[in-house]
């Protein structure tokens, strides 16, 4: 166990999995030099055959993963920023998500598509998107969003070992260093969320970068005597319905904090699940705290205005409680 930030924890998971299984290969733009630090040292340790620098060509990169996976490898396609998923979207949506189904299960596609998502760094609109709403709707892919360095390690190892295409999307604002287990078999199962704070008054379901903000909001609410059940969702496909429904049964009130725009977001989908399956336990409307319905602006003052902040979460819950 040691305290690590997000990128070193991701790097550790990659090192361990590439050592464990020589069918795991990784490629991407600047994979060798590693722009963001996830892939640092991999080329030195595993060679230029297994760790490849690609040209800047997301269109072919996403498709290559499908072909290489069909031919027996476990490719990790490193797409840098979430927005570049759009550039490579044809092979993601038309091939990776559908080939297994269209061929009646003839083929397994153990692929990890990894990218950094979200705002908070003045990277502006084309490097700050949250692309998972579109991915969640594809059907044939899993989607995970770790919230900190520990979950980043555990989920990446699960993603690499999974036989489906998995989108592994890490928040740009990865948060503070956390204790990361050294155990090279430390995994977090895909489809399991974590309850990271217990309380009886309200449930917060948070995703990715919103988990740290939700934790801070939880502390502020605790000070005001409000008990919060905080669920770090971790996996968007599949969603851990049991855990969120059980929490709702306990608290009767739920808000979902999601860095995506609201329309067809993870938050709106979870809201639909809860109203379908747990309506009778609700004491108040399900609320969604999401990014405002604009592109992410550059200037920090504008950016923090549109991305949910701790105060937005606290305010939402206070309004919710005053309703009753």
């Amino acid at each position: 166990m040691s305290k690590q930030r997000m990128m070193p924890a991701i790097n550790l998971a990659l090192q361990e999995e590439m050592k464990r299984d020589n069918r795991v290969i990784l490629y991407g733009e600047d994979a060798g030099i590693s722009l963001l630090g996830q892939t640092t040292g991999l080329q030195e340790n595993f060679g230029k055959d297994r760790v490849r620098d690609t040209p800047i060509c997301e269109n072919i990169m996403t498709g290559m993963a499908v072909g290489a996976a069909a031919a027996g490898y476990r490719p990790i396609c490193h797409l840098l920023y979430g927005n570049f998923i759009y550039t490579g979207f044809d092979s993601i949506a038309n091939q990776a998500a559908k080939l297994k189904y269209m061929t009646a299960g003839q083929v397994k596609l153990p692929i990890v598509y990894m990218a950094v998502i979200g705002g908070g760094r003045s990277a502006a609109a084309q490097h700050s998107d949250i692309p998972y709403p579109a991915l969640m709707n594809l059907g044939g892919v899993k989607v995970v969003v770790p919230s900190n360095s520990r979950t980043a390690k555990g989920l990446l190892k699960s993603a690499i070992r999974d036989d489906n295409p998995v989108f592994y999307l890490t928040a740009a604002g990865g948060g503070r260093p956390e204790e990361v287990p050294d155990d090279d078999n430390y995994i977090i199962p895909i489809g399991k969320s974590e309850v990271i704070n217990q309380g009886n008054d309200v449930t917060i379901i948070s995703i990715g970068s919103m988990t740290l903000k939700s934790l801070q909001a939880t502390k502020k609410l605790n000070e005001k005597g409000v008990g919060v059940d905080l669920i770090d969702l971790l996996s968007l496909v599949p969603i851990d319905e049991d855990t969120i429904i059980n929490s709702l049964k306990k608290t009767g009130r739920v808000i979902i904090v999601d860095e995506a725009r609201d329309i067809c977001s993870a938050a709106s989908h979870i809201s639909a699940i809860l109203s379908d399956k747990a309506f009778k336990y609700l004491k108040s409307p399900i609320k969604r705290v999401t990014v405002k319905d604009v592109a992410i602006p550059y200037s920090p003052i504008l950016e923090s205005h549109v991305i949910p902040e701790v105060a937005d979460i606290v305010n939402c819950i206070e309004e919710l409680l005053e309703l009753n």
Binding site: I25, M64, A65, V66, G67, A68, Y73, D90, Q95
Partner: peptide, 19 residues
């Protein structure tokens, strides 16, 4: 998809090359 198989074939070629 017109040209949709392109990436798949390249990925398979990469696998064959590595094998």
């Amino acid at each position: 998809v017109v040209a949709g198989g392109m990436g798949l074939a390249v990925g398979a070629a990469l696998a064959s090359k590595m094998d």
